[in-house]
Design a protein around this nucleic acid. Structure first.
Length: 511
RNA sequence: GGCGCUAUCGUCUAGGGGUUAGGACGUGAGAUUCUCAAUCUUAAAACCCGGGUUCGAUUCCCGGUAGCGCUACCA
């Protein structure tokens, strides 16, 4: 197995948006494949017809693309043929494959028909539970005589197909946990194919069960390393038994720990954003998310490096260094990484990504004149370092785009600043100068004004600056005036509805 | 209940029979600034409990406890 390149797979169900936990599973698979020169396949587990939807499959593929997790084999999207020669890659298109394999197992005596009804099994479980024994199937249909089987069949009795498991411990190797072993008596003969209620029919009439189809698919697609969530650990012995029944080599496993929320519960919607689509909408960069997810359950060899581009990750990643314990999703650290990558990101790219968050405050980007684009780039240069995510930009840039005077006045901290006599005096002085001035208010002019006001009123420091800041930007804190003013004045000339310094002061102070 | 997995600062983790138990996020303080953010410096902060094994366990073994997962003719 070590001599041939590994083959790994990500096998999601298209029943909803791609969750960060699954995204991490996909990432680790992808990283492992890229690191080892192996193949990364995408397989769609859409056998649950009621919950699977085509639009989720499209979304899934789109999300993976956004994260940069390209697959070497998988279903073709939009009616395209499959990529790769081990298809089809949608389970719904593989039903005959499963049926053929079931027939083989039955023929070889590795599997048998079980005529027990769900009610009977339920009763059996109840008895076992009362006697606090393990709740495993008794195996009473194992030894049905041929005559009984044929009689049942003739009567049209529904049956399920079960795998006959040898009475011995089932163990497998896990690259992150070592050897995992299950005692023989804890694993009962698993159902492979569900019974079909309401009549007979061939074996193929029943719907094969998940544990069975993944195993068949993984084997047929020659998956060498099964990297998946640790909620599958308990399923693994059954799957191992299936591999062995077919005489297939058992792959290497790597079970990834669960991602938890701050309350140590499994991460879900009530913890905030959990789907990749949502993170994208919030203005996280894919490289930040990829870096963060990589760090959630894996650490660099040197124990120190925290920032990795996807390319660096593919060089550094090994399954051996994946940690087995569950990890709590930490939005603060993700934010830190996002700020990090926002600083590194190409300006044009950030501008294109940011544009949409401004709604009708900006014209459509394609239609925007160069002057607006250039000005917007300068706005971003000043404000992007101040945000965790791009969707915070509109809020952060209200000092530029304009603010609501009433809201600004009513803010408790602003109100306290404005209540001082000195504030009134300062703003009066400022208004006088604004009226007397014509043309742009440059940082130089503004500096002179502030010095004059300081000299005339004796007010200085915060008592001078804060009221001025509030009048101009709506808040007492923010970026430096000499950076803000040119942006305001230039923006005011762009027909974006941005008030000039003069307009701001006049409106705020009143005439 | 049964079975399984897991257990180092608040969080993500490094480490591993003898260490000042390392890094990062976050938090506190300081520098800078009119202010905020950023940045830099700095501080506080951890080996779940109990038994072994050993000269010596946070590290190895066993047990407990806790958290999580599975326990379906769901995926």
């Amino acid at each position: 197995m070590a001599t041939t390149p590994p083959r790994v797979r990500f096998a999601p169900s298209p029943t909803g948006l791609l969750h960060v936990g699954n995204a991490r599973t996909a990432l680790y698979n992808w990283l492992f494949a890229r690191r080892t020169g192996g193949k990364f396949l995408l397989r769609i587990e859409d056998t649950d017809l009621e919950r699977s939807e085509a639009r989720y499959e499209d979304q899934l593929i789109e999300d993976l693309r956004w994260l940069g997790l390209d697959s070497d084999e998988g279903p073709g999207d939009g009616g395209q043929p499959d990529r790769g020669t081990f298809g089809p890659y949608r389970q719904s298109e593989r039903l005959t494959v499963y049926a053929e394999h079931t027939e083989r197992l039955l023929r070889e005596g590795k599997a048998y028909r079980c005529f027990c009804t769900p009610e009977e099994l339920e009763a059996e479980r109840k008895v076992a539970a009362a006697g606090h024994g393990s709740q495993v199937y008794s195996g009473r249909c194992r030894a049905l005589t041929q005559a009984v089987i044929e009689k049942n069949l003739a009567e049209g009795k529904p049956f399920a197909v079960r795998l006959r498991i040898e009475d011995r411990p089932l163990r497998f190797h896990d690259m992150v946990r070592g050897t995992v072993e299950f005692a023989a008596e804890t694993v009962s003969d698993p159902i492979l194919v569900r019974s079909i209620t309401g009549g007979a029919g061939g074996v193929s009439a029943g719907v094969p069960v998940y544990n069975y189809v993944v195993t068949v698919d993984d084997a047929l697609m020659q998956i060498s390393h099964v990297i998946r969530g640790d909620d599958h650990i308990s399923n693994t012995p059954k799957q191992v038994a299936i591999y062995e029944a077919f005489g297939w080599p058992v792959p290497e496993f790597a079970h990834l720990s669960t991602i938890l929320g701050a309350d140590r519960e499994r991460l879900s919607k009530r913890h905030g954003a959990t789907s990749i689509a949502t993170f994208r909408e919030m203005g996280y960069l894919p490289e930040a998310l990829v870096n963060y997810l990589a760090l959630l359950g894996w650490g660099a060899e040197d124990g120190k490096t925290e920032t990795f581009t996807p390319a660096e990750l593919t060089r550094a990643f090994t399954l051996e260094r994946v940690t087995p314990s569950p990890a709590i999703f930490d939005f603060d650290k993700l934010n830190w990484l996002n700020r990090h990558y926002l600083k590194l990101a190409d300006q044009g790219r950030v501008a294109a990504l940011s544009w949409g968050y401004f709604g009708d405050r900006l014209p459509a980007r394609e239609a925007a004149p160069e002057s607006v684009k250039g000005w917007f780039d300068r706005v971003l240069a000043l404000f992007v370092p101040a945000v965790d995510r791009l969707d915070q930009l509109p809020e952060k840039t209200t000092p530029i785009f304009g603010f609501d005077i009433e809201t600004a006045r009513n803010d408790p901290e602003n109100a306290a600043v404005l209540a001082a006599d000195s504030a009134r005096t300062v703003l009066g002085e400022l208004a006088a100068r604004v009226r007397a001035h014509s043309g742009n208010v440059t940082p130089e002019v503004f500096k002179v004004w502030l010095n004059e006001i300081k000299a005339a009123t004796g007010v200085k420091g915060q008592e001078l600056f804060h009221p001025v800041r509030i009048a101009l930007t709506g808040t007492h804190s923010g970026r430096e005036f000499d950076k803000l003013l040119p942006l305001i004045e230039d923006g005011a000339g762009l027909n974006l509805g941005i008030p000039s310094v003069r307009q701001r002061v006049e409106r705020f102070v009143g005439v």
